[in-house]
Design a binder for these strands. Sequence first.
DNA 1: AACATTTTTTGATGTATATCAAAATCAACT
DNA 2: AGTTGATTTTGATATACATCAAAAAATGTT
Lengths: 186, 186
Amino acid sequence: MNPIIQQFKRYGFLSSEAETAIEGRTKHFFKKKHDHFLKSGQVLSSYFVLEKGLIRAYFYRDGKEVNTWFGEENQIFGSILPVYTNRPSFENIQFLEDSEIYAISVEDLNELYRMYPELNLIGRKIAEEVCVILEERSISLHIESASERYQSLIRLQPRLLSRINLGHIASYLGITQETLSRIRRY
Amino acid sequence: MNPIIQQFKRYGFLSSEAETAIEGRTKHFFKKKHDHFLKSGQVLSSYFVLEKGLIRAYFYRDGKEVNTWFGEENQIFGSILPVYTNRPSFENIQFLEDSEIYAISVEDLNELYRMYPELNLIGRKIAEEVCVILEERSISLHIESASERYQSLIRLQPRLLSRINLGHIASYLGITQETLSRIRRY
DNA sequence: AACATTTTTTGATGTATATCAAAATCAACT
DNA sequence: AGTTGATTTTGATATACATCAAAAAATGTT
């Protein structure tokens, strides 16, 4: 079954008409490790679900990459900014493993919101869930030391550590790779 | 006119029935400087609009207060967590000036979502806007130095600085008051 | 297996910010 | 206006983390 529909159903009721309409707009891709799904400023971002694989979102700051989040299987993602403003994201999204992905474009999503207003409840729940996650992330960055942030990451996404190299993790935590290496040594 | 309705209308269409229902559930308070609107764990938080005044949201960490945001006139606030989970917030909300406030409880809001599903579009837009703000805040905490965060705050909420003492601002920025004082001296 | 490349660790040193203590300034009240 | 309490600034020192350089370990390739 289409994993976008599957995810949507976790948040609220979906009529069979809406379901069919989503089905018809869902795109299915296979991507290789290191491929990019979105390049900032180029494409209007979308909601998507990783059927298999691993992704990171990052942006550039002073010519260097800064990771903002990692995505694993069976979650729904997408930066909210394009959905809210209809402008492209500043984020790039790259696959860190060979991946299989189901996606729906922002244009299609907004059309679906118009055609099936019931979808707005699901959209609201998803956005509210993202708020809760972002609040936690802000608090972690606000008050935790580097080592506490590392512990928080282990708690929230334990499987990441064996799948991603230290440089990417350090960038996500807002510290250098050297500092992360020393933190792990204790 | 009821400022909650006024704010809602910025995000989408409101039927006159929904408008009347919101009107009937809106509460109007006057609060003194230093009063609390919400104490964490006690009351289920709500959406509200400051007609006049100034508020801060904070929580405790190791017995010390940490400010998470400040609210000024003509914005809509409320922590999303209780709306999403139906559980009380960990945040306290305190008035920093004598204030006038219009509020709607989470229970009432959720009832309104059930009675007038059209409201979900407005709720979605509000949650999406909060996501965008929280993303900015996370990035600021992630990559900016203390002094850059201070500049960001000046840019986003310039009027705060003359209304709030340094200790509160420093706590929001995640630095000590002494460091903020030195940053301002240049 | 040997070589090249990437990733992780280690060491030496620099910098931003914290901590503790006290002085200076500002605001509130009689 | 003078006294009291709160807020802000200043100074001395400590700590967490960054930077730069290089070694060590792991991984990929022929």
